[in-house]
Design a protein around this nucleic acid. Structure first.
Lengths: 205, 205
DNA sequence: TATATTTATTGAACATTGTTCATTACTTTT
DNA sequence: AAAAGTAATGAACAATGTTCAATAAATATA
């Protein structure tokens, strides 16, 4: 039966169309100001259709949230080839900072907004696979660093969490508008130079 | 004229009453689910009255945002007495982490939500005084550390920003629900142990 | 004190949102 | 060609932020 398969494919396509319309509007006019009606208009479907393919708005948020993590992951995976773990760690952070600066709205959706996580809770999915997968890449690298004698006397989990937290922290101030407190330089510069401070700190271990 | 003064005082009081009602509901049922009608009900005034005292909902968010920074600041100021700057730095971070863990909703309002900053922009107040003031406490302390020979070869601004970013990063994962990726331990423990990792890293400089 | 004026409070009404669901249009099967 | 099944629709509903003419209360004036 090719029909059933085609229908499945079409369903998937329309789901993606809705997501891409949503993403376009998110980037154009901001996440908060994008409504279901806007999304429906954008892709020339009715409101009701959107609700056939997505249970509610949070599920749309979650869909884009997932896409964002896939994108970030695909940027990170090639770096697993870097043999020296400290170099790999620094490169991972660099990619991460670039991603956050290039995609502040996506970054906000992925790491600040409640909605995507609220959907996971509603859907009783207590696991956040995308986050976990990304975390694993980092943990593996930090583990390799420990094995090579870096960060002596530190524990894997809290250290990994600390490193992610650090890079996330300097990025998130940028994406959520809390960076004005040091106004002498443009905020992107401040984020990058802070990350440089961080890598030069890590190098000593 | 005592009347005008009394009226001013009463105005201030009602403003505070609205804010405290809002805060109560925020903590009770979450920020997102608190409506203007709820706030008005809570304090036995009408919707309209709320709008006499606050231009819009963002201004209420901003009011609580300010109160949060005042509270955090008042927790930090006593630590300026600590003479050794590295000890002071660690103590400041500790206070900060405690505040974030004890007040996750307030923390989210202060450092993640768009609304309070959106209000500043709307009101054409390009300065974020509360944030700046808090940042200054930290910058002063980091500056003292540099003078005493810590963090050699690092620059004041990016380093200060990095340190704030680090502590904020590990806290924010907790308040915005992105901490599930390491599930072996309760999230509060992970935040605290990560902060310990951080202080023990800093101590070496 | 009685009246006029200013100030404070109100809540009905509006626009916009997320969401639902009976109805319509279209596809596939018989 | 008709029946059965699937997909798409948009009017309708409830809830929200917001406004504003009308009301009530407080103050100033005579």
């Amino acid at each position: 039966m090719g029909v059933a398969e085609r229908k499945l494919r079409e369903k998937e396509q329309l789901k993606n169309l809705i997501l891409s319309g949503a993403k376009k509007l998110f980037l154009e006019k901001g996440i908060e100001k994008t409504t279901i009606r806007n999304i429906a208009d954008e892709i020339d479907y009715s409101i009701g259709t959107v609700y056939v393919y997505f249970k509610d708005k949070d599920e749309i948020f979650n869909g884009l949230h997932s896409q964002g993590f896939q994108q970030l992951r695909s940027l990170m995976l090639p770096l697993l080839k870097v043999n020296d773990p400290m170099e790999r760690l620094k490169a991972l952070g660099h990619i991460y900072v670039d991603f956050a600066l290039d995609n502040p709205d996506m970054y906000e959706l992925m790491f600040s907004m409640k909605a995507p996580m609220a959907y996971l809770e509603k859907a009783r999915m207590d696991e956040w696979n995308e986050g976990q997968a990304t975390f694993e890449i980092l943990r593996k690298t930090v583990g390799d660093c420990l094995e090579k004698g870096h960060f002596q006397g530190h524990q894997l989990n809290p250290l990994t969490y600390l490193i992610w937290g650090t890079v996330h922290g300097i990025c998130s101030f940028n994406s959520n508008g809390r960076i004005m407190c040091v106004q002498e330089e443009p905020s992107e510069e401040l984020v990058r130079s802070s990350y440089e401070e961080f890598t030069s700190l890590m190098e000593r271990f």
